[in-house]
Design a binder for these strands. Sequence first.
RNA 1: GCGCCCGUAGCUCAGUUGGAUAGAGCAGGAGCCUUCUAAGCUUCAGGCCACAGGUUCGAAUCCUGUCGGGCGCGCCA
Length: 579
Amino acid sequence: MTLYARFADRIDAILDTLEAEGALPAGLDRRNVAVEPPRDPAHGDLATNAAMVLAKPAKTNPRALAALIAPKLADLPEIETAEVAGPGFINVRLTPESWRDELRTILRDAGGYGRSALGQGARVNVEYVSANPTGPMHMGHCRGAVVGDALASVLEHAGFAVTREYYVNDAGSQVDTLARSAHLRYREALGETIEVPEGLYPGDYLVPIGAALAAEYGDRYVTAPEAEWLVTFREKTVAAMLDLIRADLALLGIHHDRFASEAEVQASGKVKAAFDRLRADGLLYEGVLEAPKGEVPDDWAPVEMTLFRATAFGDDSDRPVMKADGGLTYFGTDLAYHAQKADDADQLIDIWGADHAGTVKRIQAAVKALTKDGNGAAKPFDVKLVQMVRLLRGGEPVKMSKRAGNFVTLADVVREVGKDVVRFTMLTRKADAQMDFDFAKVVEASKDNPVFYVQYAHARIRSLHRRTAEAGLAIAAEPDLTLLDGEEMALVKLAAQFPRIVEAAAVNHEPHRIAFYLSDVAAAFHAAWNRGNDDPARRFLMADDAATTSARLALAESIGQIIRNGLAIMGVAAAEEMN
RNA sequence: GCGCCCGUAGCUCAGUUGGAUAGAGCAGGAGCCUUCUAAGCUUCAGGCCACAGGUUCGAAUCCUGUCGGGCGCGCCA
C-alpha cells in the first residue's frame, strides 16, 4: 500500500467517526476525496480536499468542516501537523520519523518498491507492434513497440495480469504480394536474372528466403502456375518474416506472449460467432453505403454488403464486415479478433500508429457491441495512438532513399545507439506527441539528454559504494537516519512518490510518466550531489565520519533503487558506470 | 465536406486523472567552477495556458463555439 493510499484510509476512518458523532450526514459520496502531495512543498507533505468536496452535500462550509477533520488527523502518531489552509485544504505534515520509515521501506522492498495491487489481477491484453509480416522492423514500428512494451510493464507493476500480444496480418493481399516477391527471389536463386517489378517487395531480405525455397523445392515451381505454389510460399515466407521480426524485437528486449494469426481467426469459428452475436442484437444488416466523402475511389460502386451498425456506438458511418463477394473485410476480421481477445481478458489496449486514427471509432464501436453486458457496460478498451518519429542526424533529417524497401531498420538503430538509449528516448514524449529522434543528441553526454542524465545519477550512486569500500569506512547496517537534514529528506519525499507515479502511469496508460519522473529524481540527486562541491561537509562520502556517510549512503541507495525500478519498468538497464 | 489529434515562456516540452502563486530544459542576461572520477553550479528575466462563452467552491485540465496547425476519410491493409 502506498503512503498516499494509507492516509486516504486514515481520512476515511476519520470521516466514519464524524458520521458516527453526527457531525456529518451518513452516506456522502467520498469518491472525489483525494490525498495528494501539494504542488508547493511549503504547504506540507500531503494535502486533502475532503472538506471542500464534502462541504456542499453536508450543507456546511469547507473551512468549518476542515476544522473538524484536521484535529483528528493531527492526533495520529505519524502526523506532526494538520492545518486548514486556503479555501479548505487540509495540509498535513508527517513526522520526520515517518519519512525515515519510508526510506527504510524503499531499501527493504528494493525491487518490489513501486509495485501495487491496484489492478487486482485484472487481465489486460496489450496488443502492440502487429507490423505486417512483409519485412524486417523499421523505425516506424519502433516507438509503438517500446510504448506498448513499457505500458505492459507498468500495468504489471500496478497489479494487472498482462498478456503481450502481436496480431499477425497473414491473410490479406499484402502477404500474397510477399509470396510473389519471394517466388521472384526463388527464381533468382535458381540462376535467373530478375528485376523486381512495381508493386512487389524489392528488399534484399527476401534473397535468403528465395535461396531456402530453392534449396527445398528445386526448380519444380519455376514455371508452375501461381495456384500451385502461392499458399506454400506464403506460409514459408511469413514464417521466415516472423522469425526476422521476433529477432528484431528481441534486440529491444521485447517478447510477446502470443502471436495471433489473422488467418487463424478467419478459419476458426470466431468470425461466425461474433457475427451471429451482432446479428442477434440487430447490429448487422445488409445494406448499401453512401459514397465516401472527399476523394472517391475509382472503383467505388453502390453495392449491397453486410454492414455493422457502428453508428449505434458513436461512429460516423456503418462499416462493412463482408464485401459484396462474400469475403471478409479487414474490419470484419479485426472485429472478430477483438472478440477473441475479449474472451480471455477483462480489458483491452491496442497500440496503433497515428495513421490508423481514422479507424479507431469503428473498432471501439465493435468492442462495445461485442462485450456489453445486460446493463450495457462494455469491457474497457483503449486505443493508444502513437505519433510518428522524425529521424535526424545532427539536426538534419535522415535521408531515406525513395526506392521502396530501403528504410532505416530498427536493427540498424539499435546497433548504432544501443537498446537502452532507444527505449528511454522513445518514452521521453507523450505517445500522441510527435517526436524527433536525433542520432547525435540521444547519445550526447550532457544534462540536456535525459537518458544520460538519469544513467549518470545511477552511476554516481554506484560509484559512491565502490569508493566507500575503498576508503575502508565502516558502514552501519542500520544507519542513524536522524543525521539526514531537511534537504536530504526532500529526496526521500520525491522517491516516495514513485508508487504513485507508477499507478498514475498505469491508470492513464502513459508510460512516459516514468521517464519524466526519473528525470526529476536524477535532477534532484545531482543537485544534492553538487551541494557537496561547494561545501565538503555535505558530501555523501565523508572519509572521517562513518555515521554520516552511512546515513547518506542509505539515502543515495534509496534513490538508486528508485532509478533501477523505474528503468526496469521502461526496460532499460541501469548503468554501473559511465564510459 | 466530415472526423481525429494538437495549440502552455523566443524554442522543445511537462503539468499528479478539476486544486492553492502554471513548471523544467535549451536559447538570452549576470556571476561562479578544475570536482565525494567526470561530461558543470548558482541566479535573473521571460506567460491573456490560441480566442470567446459555459459548468463549480476552484478550469491549462471538463463542455460548446471560433481561429490556427497536423493527420485521416475506402469493398485497401
